[in-house]
Write a protein that binds this DNA or RNA. Structure first.
Lengths: 333, 333
DNA sequence: CTGTTAGCGCTTTCAG
DNA sequence: CTGAAAGCGCTAACAG
């Protein structure tokens, strides 16, 4: 594989000049540039990005840590991050943290040792403090899905509380007075916030909060099933169900159906996230839109701005959720 | 950030020795090793993987090219590849090709310039010849989802023809005699093969093939809808439907429902891939299992074996599909 | 505008 | 078993 020396030799210039035409840096005489470019194509020259990184102290890679690579949610985020970054010639190194403190820490360690120029983190277990320390001591960090006080400019997040509020409110305004709730894991900030929104809506409409109407899940479909079984057994009758995410809603609906409860005639359901498969469900699931794709793009732009000197990028840091109304809500007169 | 020099200095040895303890290569006296390790932890030393790569001419990174990062399918593959590779201290650089010849070529170019030690490709548009040239001239390649003659040992694939056959057969053996088919894109080998399987089953059971019973889609849900509309308009009545993948099946079912066709009472449906959301559909979709997660793992192992010298790895190259029977098939007596 | 000259931080012979 | 020395291929001052 041809090196920069060969190119310089063939073009009859110094290797510094070749480097300059590669990086479009400085001024190079048009003629010289042409000679160099000719030599490059003739030799099929491809710059060695490893060597570039070592010399420039920049790897042109961005490390991404997400809870999971599979599932209906993160793929869309990754997709947009990759797209936005690749347009700028940067690449992504992706790794999974599995919402576990140890694995998240490990993942970060891995990415740092890979000398990523920046990290984009979607993490739950790691503390705000840890993240702040990290970015002060090792590498620029952009956080997605969570708002860390003091680093607002490097966070891209959704107003989860408002999402929970809207979900409950939509049911209430459709005439439902008895609302059950299957929450996400309450140790995760988003699960907690969504649940708070649900409670705020109840209060605002003068509905009593009843702990028996609440069951905690872990965002997996199975936990939605279990939670629904529990509610059916322990909660007073309810006609509305707010779910912490779409997967748990799918599980809950399945169980409801097994108990002869018709959706939406007997029970109206709202999910959260608006993942793609909600349209394939029957009835189609009403849900709260989580613009994860857009948010991924924004996180990528933060990196472009912070570490690669891009300017003129529109960046939105805070997103507001909205209701996507579909067939799973019954309007009660 | 501490370098190898600092460590050597603090430990009172040469940097060559430090290098040796890092790589567990050669023999190092136990005492020396301890001194070095103490120095490393004391300094919080982290080897610079960029420099390692340059010096060793090995990037420890594996490039992955998939059609899309989002959707219900590839995430599972990526997840397993990442897992398997990271266990070996390698990392993945992921990029998307969008089933487009130009973008796939670009993606490969990108990964090669990144000096990946190997490539794992899930591509459609690029020819067998191109792939062979690539691996002869630039970088080891493992191909997933397709079987290339002459490089069987570096392919991990599914018997798609058999899958199409089983899908159709399951319907036939459940008493259905009129089978429609919504195929995947016929320019893609898997779409083509699955369709062949469908035809083989018809022939085997003495059922006539009727071109009006076939509509081509592109694996997206929308195309499933369109295909179904077309079949309902142009095909003779049918009680069974074989779909090229699960998403198109979801679209087709939606349309059927809009036409007052009950699933499975009026129409039995079989999908393909067994993506996770088939369980959330109602009725749950019968489908052909595509063990993409396992296959991802196998591809990773091929790389480990081919370029990182791993031995003793169980590697399965060819996978056989199987039917996952769920509620969308009606047994006719 | 172009060439010279140091490295970037590590691996890897080659001696000893 | 350990050290010295020569790069890996490129970037980035610094001169000119």
């Amino acid at each position: 594989m041809a090196t920069i020396y060969k190119v310089a030799e063939l073009a009859g210039v110094s290797l510094a000049t070749v480097s300059r035409v590669m990086n479009n840096s400085d001024k190079v005489a048009a003629k010289t540039r042409q000679k160099v470019e000719a030599a490059m194509t003739q030799l099929g020259y491809r710059p060695n990005s490893i060597a570039q990184s070592l010399a420039s102290n920049r790897s042109n890679s961005v490390g991404i840590l997400v809870p999971e690579l599979h599932g209906p949610f993160f793929g869309y985020m990754l997709s947009n991050i990759e797209l936005e970054l690749r347009k700028a010639g940067k690449h992504v190194i992706i790794t999974a943290g599995h919402s576990d403190a140890e694995r998240e820490r490990e993942g970060i360690e891995f990415l740092v040792s890979r000398r990523c120029d920046a990290l984009i983190l979607f993490v739950f277990a790691i503390s705000n403090e840890h993240i702040k320390t990290l970015r002060e001591s090792a590498v620029p960090v952009v956080v997605i899905g969570r708002l860390i006080p003091g680093m607002e400019d490097d966070c891209v997040s959704l107003n989860n509380e408002m999402g929970g509020y809207i979900a409950a409110k939509s049911l209430i305004e459709s005439g439902h007075r008895e609302l059950a709730c299957i929450t996400g894991p309450l140790w995760k900030s988003d699960g907690q916030k969504r649940f708070s929104g649900y409670k705020r809506a109840l209060k605002e409409y003068g509905l009593a909060f009843d702990q028996r109407m609440v069951a905690e899940g872990d965002y997996e479909e199975l936990s939605g099933r279990n939670a629904m079984e529990q509610l059916l057994q322990e909660a007073p009758p309810f006609t509305g169900l707010v779910c912490g995410n779409d997967e748990m809603a799918a599980g809950a609906i399945e169980i409801a159906r097994m108990h002869g409860i018709a959706i939406p005639e007997d029970l109206s359901v709202v999910g959260f996230d608006n993942v793609f498969f909600t349209r394939y469900m029957h009835p189609q699931l009403s849900t709260i839109d989580y613009p994860i794709d857009k948010m991924g793009q924004m996180a990528a732009r933060c990196v472009l701005r912070d570490v690669y000197g891009a300017t003129d990028l529109d960046i939105q840091h805070r997103f507001e959720p909205s209701l996507v109304r579909r067939a799973s809500i019954l309007e009660r007169i």
